[in-house]
Amino acid sequence: MLKTRYFVLYSLLMTAIVVASNFLVQFPLGGTLAGINLADLLTFGAFTYPISFLITDLTNRQFGPGTARKVVFVGFVVGVALSIALASPRIAIASGSAFLVGQLLDISVFNRLRQLSWWKAPLMGSLIGSVLDTVIFFSLSFAPIFSFIGPNDDFAIASAPIFGVLAAEAPRWISWALGDFAVKMLVGIVMLLPYGALMSVVRPMSARTTA
Protein backbone atom coordinates (compact mmCIF):
# COMPACT_ATOMS: atom_id res chain seq x y z
CA MET A 1 0.00 0.00 0.00
CA LEU A 2 2.82 2.40 0.89
CA LYS A 3 4.58 1.64 -2.38
CA THR A 4 1.37 2.25 -4.33
CA ARG A 5 0.84 5.63 -2.68
CA TYR A 6 4.38 6.71 -3.44
CA PHE A 7 4.10 5.39 -7.00
CA VAL A 8 0.97 7.47 -7.59
CA LEU A 9 2.61 10.53 -6.02
CA TYR A 10 5.78 10.23 -8.09
CA SER A 11 3.75 9.60 -11.25
CA LEU A 12 1.59 12.68 -10.67
CA LEU A 13 4.63 14.85 -9.99
CA MET A 14 6.39 13.54 -13.10
CA THR A 15 3.35 14.15 -15.28
CA ALA A 16 2.97 17.70 -13.95
CA ILE A 17 6.62 18.51 -14.67
CA VAL A 18 6.50 17.07 -18.19
CA VAL A 19 3.32 18.94 -19.13
CA ALA A 20 4.53 22.22 -17.59
CA SER A 21 7.89 21.97 -19.34
CA ASN A 22 6.32 21.16 -22.73
CA PHE A 23 4.11 24.21 -22.38
CA LEU A 24 6.81 26.58 -21.08
CA VAL A 25 9.41 25.61 -23.71
CA GLN A 26 7.31 27.51 -26.26
CA PHE A 27 8.01 30.80 -24.49
CA PRO A 28 11.49 32.40 -24.71
CA LEU A 29 12.60 34.63 -21.87
CA GLY A 30 12.16 38.34 -22.45
CA GLY A 31 14.53 41.24 -21.82
CA THR A 32 18.30 41.41 -21.76
CA LEU A 33 21.01 40.53 -19.27
CA ALA A 34 24.54 41.97 -19.56
CA GLY A 35 23.76 42.86 -23.15
CA ILE A 36 22.50 39.37 -23.99
CA ASN A 37 19.08 39.03 -25.59
CA LEU A 38 17.53 36.35 -23.39
CA ALA A 39 15.01 35.41 -26.08
CA ASP A 40 17.96 34.12 -28.13
CA LEU A 41 19.24 32.02 -25.24
CA LEU A 42 16.56 30.46 -23.05
CA THR A 43 12.98 29.32 -22.77
CA PHE A 44 11.09 29.03 -19.49
CA GLY A 45 10.98 25.25 -19.84
CA ALA A 46 14.69 25.04 -19.02
CA PHE A 47 13.94 25.87 -15.39
CA THR A 48 11.26 23.25 -14.75
CA TYR A 49 12.38 20.17 -16.68
CA PRO A 50 15.47 19.30 -14.54
CA ILE A 51 13.10 18.59 -11.63
CA SER A 52 12.05 15.44 -13.49
CA PHE A 53 15.51 13.96 -12.84
CA LEU A 54 15.07 14.58 -9.10
CA ILE A 55 11.76 12.70 -9.17
CA THR A 56 13.31 9.80 -11.11
CA ASP A 57 16.31 9.58 -8.78
CA LEU A 58 14.18 9.63 -5.63
CA THR A 59 11.99 6.87 -7.06
CA ASN A 60 15.06 4.86 -8.03
CA ARG A 61 16.60 5.31 -4.59
CA GLN A 62 13.45 4.25 -2.75
CA PHE A 63 12.08 1.46 -4.93
CA GLY A 64 14.79 0.57 -7.44
CA PRO A 65 15.10 0.90 -11.23
CA GLY A 66 12.04 -1.19 -12.06
CA THR A 67 9.61 1.18 -10.33
CA ALA A 68 11.53 4.22 -11.57
CA ARG A 69 11.04 3.03 -15.16
CA LYS A 70 7.31 2.60 -14.53
CA VAL A 71 7.08 6.20 -13.26
CA VAL A 72 8.95 7.37 -16.36
CA PHE A 73 6.58 5.47 -18.66
CA VAL A 74 3.55 6.94 -16.88
CA GLY A 75 5.03 10.43 -17.22
CA PHE A 76 5.78 9.73 -20.88
CA VAL A 77 2.32 8.46 -21.84
CA VAL A 78 0.19 10.86 -19.82
CA GLY A 79 2.55 13.80 -20.32
CA VAL A 80 2.64 13.47 -24.10
CA ALA A 81 -1.13 12.98 -24.33
CA LEU A 82 -1.83 16.11 -22.29
CA SER A 83 0.95 18.08 -23.96
CA ILE A 84 -0.65 17.68 -27.38
CA ALA A 85 -3.47 19.86 -26.07
CA LEU A 86 -1.11 22.45 -24.56
CA ALA A 87 1.68 22.45 -27.12
CA SER A 88 2.12 21.56 -30.78
CA PRO A 89 2.18 17.86 -31.74
CA ARG A 90 5.79 18.30 -32.86
CA ILE A 91 6.81 19.61 -29.44
CA ALA A 92 4.92 16.78 -27.76
CA ILE A 93 6.61 14.12 -29.92
CA ALA A 94 10.06 15.66 -29.46
CA SER A 95 9.59 16.05 -25.73
CA GLY A 96 8.27 12.52 -25.30
CA SER A 97 11.15 10.98 -27.23
CA ALA A 98 13.81 13.04 -25.43
CA PHE A 99 12.19 12.47 -22.05
CA LEU A 100 11.98 8.71 -22.46
CA VAL A 101 15.58 8.27 -23.64
CA GLY A 102 17.07 10.77 -21.18
CA GLN A 103 15.22 9.44 -18.14
CA LEU A 104 15.95 5.79 -18.89
CA LEU A 105 19.62 6.64 -19.30
CA ASP A 106 19.54 8.54 -16.00
CA ILE A 107 18.09 5.46 -14.28
CA SER A 108 20.85 3.22 -15.65
CA VAL A 109 23.66 5.62 -14.69
CA PHE A 110 22.17 6.25 -11.23
CA ASN A 111 21.88 2.53 -10.56
CA ARG A 112 25.50 1.89 -11.55
CA LEU A 113 26.83 4.67 -9.33
CA ARG A 114 24.49 4.47 -6.34
CA GLN A 115 27.10 2.79 -4.12
CA LEU A 116 29.48 5.75 -4.49
CA SER A 117 29.28 9.10 -2.66
CA TRP A 118 25.64 10.15 -2.26
CA TRP A 119 25.86 13.03 -4.74
CA LYS A 120 27.64 11.25 -7.61
CA ALA A 121 24.76 9.07 -8.78
CA PRO A 122 22.11 11.85 -9.08
CA LEU A 123 24.58 14.37 -10.51
CA MET A 124 26.10 12.09 -13.15
CA GLY A 125 22.73 10.59 -14.01
CA SER A 126 21.17 13.99 -14.63
CA LEU A 127 24.27 15.25 -16.46
CA ILE A 128 24.46 12.37 -18.94
CA GLY A 129 20.68 12.14 -19.30
CA SER A 130 20.44 15.88 -19.93
CA VAL A 131 23.00 15.78 -22.74
CA LEU A 132 21.00 13.23 -24.71
CA ASP A 133 17.67 14.79 -23.76
CA THR A 134 18.76 18.23 -24.98
CA VAL A 135 20.14 16.96 -28.30
CA ILE A 136 17.04 14.90 -29.07
CA PHE A 137 14.48 17.47 -27.97
CA PHE A 138 15.82 20.54 -29.74
CA SER A 139 16.72 18.65 -32.91
CA LEU A 140 13.29 17.06 -33.25
CA SER A 141 11.49 20.26 -32.23
CA PHE A 142 13.20 22.80 -34.46
CA ALA A 143 15.76 21.37 -36.91
CA PRO A 144 14.45 21.77 -40.49
CA ILE A 145 15.45 18.18 -41.31
CA PHE A 146 12.66 16.99 -39.00
CA SER A 147 10.00 19.27 -40.49
CA PHE A 148 8.03 16.18 -41.58
CA ILE A 149 6.95 15.90 -37.92
CA GLY A 150 5.35 19.34 -38.02
CA PRO A 151 5.83 22.90 -39.31
CA ASN A 152 9.00 24.79 -38.46
CA ASP A 153 8.96 27.66 -35.98
CA ASP A 154 10.21 30.65 -38.00
CA PHE A 155 11.49 32.42 -34.87
CA ALA A 156 13.39 29.31 -33.76
CA ILE A 157 15.13 28.66 -37.08
CA ALA A 158 15.99 32.30 -37.83
CA SER A 159 19.70 33.11 -37.57
CA ALA A 160 20.85 34.91 -34.43
CA PRO A 161 24.17 35.51 -32.63
CA ILE A 162 25.14 32.42 -30.63
CA PHE A 163 24.33 33.06 -26.95
CA GLY A 164 22.89 36.36 -28.15
CA VAL A 165 26.26 38.13 -28.25
CA LEU A 166 28.88 36.14 -30.21
CA ALA A 167 29.82 37.24 -33.72
CA ALA A 168 29.11 33.76 -35.11
CA GLU A 169 25.49 33.12 -35.98
CA ALA A 170 23.39 29.96 -35.97
CA PRO A 171 19.70 29.12 -35.90
CA ARG A 172 18.21 30.44 -32.69
CA TRP A 173 17.29 26.95 -31.52
CA ILE A 174 21.00 26.12 -31.30
CA SER A 175 21.45 28.89 -28.73
CA TRP A 176 18.32 27.69 -26.96
CA ALA A 177 19.81 24.18 -26.75
CA LEU A 178 23.12 25.45 -25.38
CA GLY A 179 21.42 27.75 -22.89
CA ASP A 180 18.96 25.04 -21.93
CA PHE A 181 21.74 22.58 -21.20
CA ALA A 182 23.66 25.15 -19.13
CA VAL A 183 20.56 25.84 -17.03
CA LYS A 184 19.85 22.11 -16.66
CA MET A 185 23.32 21.66 -15.23
CA LEU A 186 22.87 24.58 -12.84
CA VAL A 187 19.44 23.39 -11.70
CA GLY A 188 20.75 19.82 -11.51
CA ILE A 189 23.40 20.94 -9.04
CA VAL A 190 20.80 22.88 -7.05
CA MET A 191 18.55 19.78 -7.03
CA LEU A 192 21.26 17.98 -5.03
CA LEU A 193 20.14 20.05 -2.04
CA PRO A 194 16.58 18.66 -1.83
CA TYR A 195 17.88 15.22 -2.80
CA GLY A 196 20.36 15.26 0.08
CA ALA A 197 17.74 16.64 2.46
CA LEU A 198 15.26 13.90 1.52
CA MET A 199 17.72 11.01 1.80
CA SER A 200 16.79 10.40 5.44
CA VAL A 201 13.08 10.36 4.52
CA VAL A 202 13.17 8.53 1.20
CA ARG A 203 14.96 5.36 2.24
CA PRO A 204 15.49 2.27 0.07
CA MET A 205 12.67 -0.23 0.64
CA SER A 206 14.90 -3.29 0.36
CA ALA A 207 18.53 -4.21 0.77
CA ARG A 208 18.82 -4.68 -2.98
CA THR A 209 18.29 -0.96 -3.58
CA THR A 210 20.56 0.41 -0.87
CA ALA A 211 22.16 3.73 -1.83
Rank of each mutant, 00 (worst) to 15 (best):
F155A: 10
S141M: 08
A81H: 05
F181M: 02
A34G: 04
F181G: 00
Y49K: 13
S159K: 04
L132F: 15
K120N: 02
P204H: 00
Y195K: 05
F73N: 14
V190T: 06
T59C: 15
T15D: 13
L192C: 02
L192R: 00
V101F: 14
Y6R: 14
Q62D: 10
L86Y: 09
L178P: 05
A156K: 04
R114C: 04
T43L: 06
L100Y: 11
R69F: 10
N111D: 13
V183L: 07
D154M: 08
K120I: 08
G102W: 11
F110R: 10
S200W: 03
W119M: 00
N60S: 14
A87S: 13
G31R: 02
V202G: 07
A211E: 12
D57H: 11
Y6K: 13
G31P: 02
A81G: 10
G164M: 01
M199K: 06
A207V: 11
G188H: 06
R208Y: 03
T32R: 01
F181S: 01
A211R: 14
T56D: 07
L113N: 05
L82H: 06
A177K: 11
V135T: 11
L12Y: 09
I17G: 08
I55N: 15
R112C: 08
I145C: 01
V109P: 08
V131G: 06
A182G: 05
L132A: 12
S175C: 06
P122G: 02
L12D: 13
P194F: 07
N22T: 14
L127Q: 07
L192E: 02
I128W: 12
T48H: 12
I149L: 14
M124T: 06
I36N: 01
S95A: 12
T59N: 15
L193I: 13
P161H: 03
A167D: 05
A98L: 09
L127M: 13
I162G: 04
G188K: 05
S139F: 13
F137D: 02
L12C: 15
V18D: 09
A177F: 10
V131K: 06
G79C: 12
Y195R: 06
R61I: 03
A167T: 10
E169C: 00
M191K: 04
S130M: 07
G75S: 11
W176Y: 13
F63C: 14
Q62C: 10
I51S: 05
K3G: 11
L82D: 07
S126P: 03
F148I: 03
S141A: 15
R112L: 14
S97V: 15
G96T: 02
K184M: 01
Q103K: 10
S130R: 11
A143T: 02
S21A: 14
G75A: 09
I36Q: 05
F138I: 14
L33C: 09
A156L: 07
R90D: 00
V109C: 09
N60M: 09
D106S: 14
K120D: 00
S108G: 13
S200R: 09
M205P: 13
Y6H: 15
D106G: 11
L9H: 10
A158K: 02
A167S: 09
P65Q: 06
L140A: 05
I55D: 12
A197G: 04
A16G: 12
S147E: 04
D57G: 08
F99N: 02
